[in-house]
């Protein structure tokens, strides 16, 4: 086995703020690797240890997933590996997407509504309590989706006006805001830690 103290974590790099995620992962002691096609999930024939689905436009990302069986390859990967999804990424992994309805990977037992808080003029930065240690967390919401429902296996780590904004389900972590755009690295650190734990199992 290779030295796994530096986990290799992929960042879906079709479009969006994947570079910001890659920087955040580096700061947290992981080696980021950009994923543009299905084959990138297994560079050198070995699967990446985890994957980040970044913010951006979910409709654009979906167009690329619908080519060359990328959708199925990614779904398989997300069902078996640690995944961290933010904003558009959270839309991609949801069980159901509304407003408008669109196809999704269905690995997170949640119903997500797109653009549920309004347009860009309604984007906002909030401070809120979370289950993560270290006090209130800054949350950057950009044309954010809303998690309308979660299944029984989903742990809610933070809420905004009653709706879940940070959730965990097994190896999956999802946020409707953008931890990659804040200085506070607690969410990324929690994910990298989960990836390292999954490697050791």
């Amino acid at each position: 086995m290779n030295d796994r103290s530096w986990p290799r974590i992929g960042v879906l790099a079709i479009q969006g703020d994947y570079a910001a995620h890659a920087d955040a992962l580096t700061e947290c002691g992981a080696i980021p690797s950009l994923v543009k096609i299905g084959e990138d999930l297994r560079p050198d024939g070995r699967s990446l240890d985890g994957l980040v689905l970044p913010g951006g436009e979910s409709t654009t990302m979906l167009k690329f997933l619908e080519k060359h069986q990328f959708f199925d390859v990614l779904k398989d990967y997300c069902e078996t590996h640690p995944v961290f999804a933010t904003c558009a990424g959270a839309i991609l992994i949801a069980r159901e997407v509304r407003h408008p309805a669109q196809r999704s990977l269905g690995v997170l037992d949640a119903v997500v509504e797109r653009n549920a808080y309004g347009r860009q003029i309604d984007s906002t930065i909030l401070q809120a309590e979370t289950s993560l240690p270290g006090g209130p967390l800054e949350m950057v919401f950009i044309r954010a989706p809303r998690i309308a429902e979660v299944g029984p296996g989903v742990e809610v780590l933070a809420r905004r006006e009653g709706s879940a904004v940070l959730v965990r389900q097994g190896k999956i972590l999802a946020a409707t805001f953008h931890p990659e755009l804040s200085v506070d690295r607690r969410v990324h650190k929690a994910f990298v830690k989960a990836v390292i734990e999954a490697i050791r199992k």
Binding site: D17, R143, L181
Partner: peptide
């Protein structure tokens, strides 16, 4: 917030 939306449009 303004730059945040621009970040989302990258790529």
């Amino acid at each position: 917030l303004k730059i945040g939306l621009a970040e989302m449009l990258k790529g």
